[in-house]
Amino acid sequence: MSSNASSSKPGKLVLDQARLDAAKQSLDQGAVTPDLGRWREDIVQLLNDALATELVCVLRYKRHHFTATGLESPAIAEEFLVHATEEQAHADKIAQRIVQLGGEPDLNPDSLTRRSHADYDEALDLHAMIRANLVAERVAIEAYTQMIELIGGKDPTTRRLIEQILEQEQEHADELSDWMTKAK
């Protein structure tokens, strides 16, 4: 319960009626209630940077999928494609949330790499590809962890979305870490 919630006696949770009444106003804002509205622009900016990161990751994984060579490469290349598909799903969910918040997803290709937290990589060595993807996943994990802390209770829906994406990014990092030891 928010710190704005009132309580008539210690230990009792009671909804804040003023906030409920405020939610009845500005219906043109859709799901953006007044309390969330204060943080909307900041959250949309965080999400647009995360969107850029996901799209750069899609492109990096796709490049690695198509250019991976060597004895271990067929299986790992297929996993790169799986990761690319999952990163694209993350990007789609983030873009949908930006629109729900009344923002516009920034898909401008000219600024993707500049806004991305992770780097694009053109490595041709399979071990270097795995390493670059692991670094990117670790950066994404850190970025999403910080976003969760920043958003906190300000926007529970966005926080839950980011938590779900974070869980999958952690799975990717674990897989890549395993591949690094196998590819040596």
Rank of each mutant, 00 (worst) to 15 (best):
M1W: 13
S3H: 11
A5M: 11
S8M: 10
P10D: 13
L15W: 15
Q17I: 14
D21V: 14
A22Y: 02
A23K: 00
Q25W: 08
S26N: 15
G30E: 06
V32E: 07
G37M: 11
I43G: 10
L46Y: 07
L46S: 05
L46Q: 12
A50D: 02
T53L: 01
E54A: 01
L55H: 00
V56K: 00
K62H: 10
F66Q: 08
T67N: 09
G70T: 03
E72P: 08
P74N: 03
I76E: 06
F80M: 14
L81D: 15
A84V: 05
T85Q: 11
E86A: 07
E87V: 00
Q88F: 04
A89E: 04
A91V: 04
D92K: 03
E104V: 10
N108M: 05
P109W: 03
D110V: 00
S111D: 07
S116H: 05
S116M: 11
A118W: 02
Y120S: 06
Y120T: 05
E122I: 03
L126D: 00
H127W: 09
H127R: 09
H127D: 07
I130A: 05
A132Y: 05
V135D: 11
A136I: 04
E137T: 10
E137M: 07
R138H: 01
I141K: 01
E142F: 07
A143K: 11
T145N: 06
Q146H: 12
Q146C: 05
M147R: 15
E149V: 15
L150W: 09
G153Y: 01
K154P: 01
I162W: 00
Q164K: 00
L166C: 02
L166Q: 06
E169H: 08
E169D: 05
Q170N: 13
E171I: 07
A173M: 05
D178N: 09
D178V: 14
W179F: 11
A183Q: 11
A183L: 11
K184W: 14
